[in-house]
Amino acid sequence: MKFTSFARAALCAIVAGSASVAAAEEVSTVATDEVVIPAKCLLQIKGVKYITGRCDFRPTGEGDFVLQGRDYFTYVFVSTQDAPNMAEAHWNGRPSSTHAHSPLGKLTRDGACWVSETAKICAWKLDK
């Protein structure tokens, strides 16, 4: 994967809004202007849907993104080294927690979704 553990932690904190300016400067892959795109989303883990319906989609560069629902969010880090259509993901795991401390492991792309045996993360464009 292209992010170190430190960079992942800093990125998670920056997007969640709890990082210091120093930590933000350490992660050069984060865009300076945050883009938020309303989307139709799904975050399903072990058959339980934690985000379903409208959410905020935040691209963070090079295919990586954040899905933010009401109480839950997930980060998807797309691999540029392992294999095409591979990613790793983390999520907050507890309602309203501010850190994506729970790993979801490796996922593969299936259309608008990233899937593994236990997780499914999807984002679709909203119909206008």
Rank of each mutant, 00 (worst) to 15 (best):
A16S: 13
I14S: 15
D71C: 09
M86Y: 13
H99T: 13
A112G: 01
E25K: 10
C122E: 03
E26Y: 12
V15L: 03
L126G: 02
K120A: 11
D110S: 11
S28M: 07
I14N: 11
A123Y: 15
D33W: 06
A87Q: 02
F77A: 07
V35N: 04
A9M: 15
S28R: 13
G105P: 03
S97W: 05
S97N: 09
H90L: 02
I37N: 09
G93D: 07
G105L: 05
D110V: 15
V66I: 14
T74A: 14
T32G: 14
V115Y: 01
S79H: 12
K128D: 06
L104I: 04
M86W: 12
V78P: 04
V36D: 03
V115K: 07
T98H: 07
L107H: 06
F57W: 08
V66R: 12
F6E: 14
C113P: 02
E25H: 12
I51A: 03
D64Y: 00
A39R: 01
G111Q: 15
S5A: 09
S18G: 05
V21P: 06
N85W: 13
E88W: 05
E26D: 09
F73M: 11
V27H: 04
T118F: 00
C113V: 02
D64G: 02
P59L: 03
A9E: 13
T80W: 14
A31W: 05
F65M: 03
E25V: 12
C12T: 09
S96W: 04
A119S: 08
A16M: 04
K128E: 13
D110P: 02
T60D: 03
T98R: 07
A123E: 01
E88R: 11
E25G: 10
G47S: 07
L42M: 12
F65P: 00
K125A: 12
T60R: 05
T80L: 04
